[in-house]
């Protein structure tokens, strides 16, 4: 009985805290994406040849976790099947955050383009069953830093 009350309490608390954190994170992601939109990140594999560039590997890495409430909800999704909607925002946020961090690194290096962008996703729960619902997303690409200032 007490265990049940404890679980319900945890669900309520984690629901409010979790959704607050998520809202704040989305706000920050959208703001930064607007700012960094002028630095394109593309997936082509051949670098443009019209200019001389210094090419550097840039990485953006993030580890995110869902809250207790959403993990509980995911268990329910697991039972019934269908879209695991409670993990969708987690992965969406993690991918965008990783790309943003990569872009921020590239912007510091004064790059004008990132090409050959790739993602790696890893779940961090191996061995601990369903106790942890975290993902790691790594975005990486090649930053093109112009050697001479562009003619414009």
């Amino acid at each position: 009985m007490y265990q049940m009350i404890f679980v319900i309490l945890l669900l309520i608390i984690s629901y409010f805290i979790g959704s607050h954190i998520e809202r704040r994170h989305y706000k920050s992601i959208i703001d930064r994406e607007k700012k960094l939109n002028k630095l394109p990140a593309v997936t082509i594999k051949t670098p443009p040849e019209h200019e001389k560039f210094e090419q550097q590997l840039v990485l953006g890495n993030v580890t995110l976790s869902v809250d207790y409430f959403k993990r509980f909800l995911a268990t329910l999704h697991n039972f019934f099947g269908g879209r695991v909607t409670s993990y969708e925002t987690l992965l969406d946020r993690a991918r965008r955050e990783a790309l943003l961090r990569m872009k921020e690194t590239a912007a510091e290096k004064k790059a004008t383009l990132i090409f050959n962008v790739k993602y790696e996703t890893a779940s961090i729960y191996k061995g601990s069953g369903s106790a942890i619902g975290s993902v790691e997303v790594l975005a990486y690409g090649t930053a093109m830093i112009p050697l001479s200032p562009s003619p414009q």
């Binding site: 629901y15 959403k70 509980f72």
Partner: peptide
């Protein structure tokens, strides 16, 4: 990439 379903409503339903 994110469905519009409200998590609490989904939770209550499931």
């Amino acid at each position: 990439n994110v469905s519009k379903a409200h998590p609490m409503a989904t939770f209550i339903k499931l």
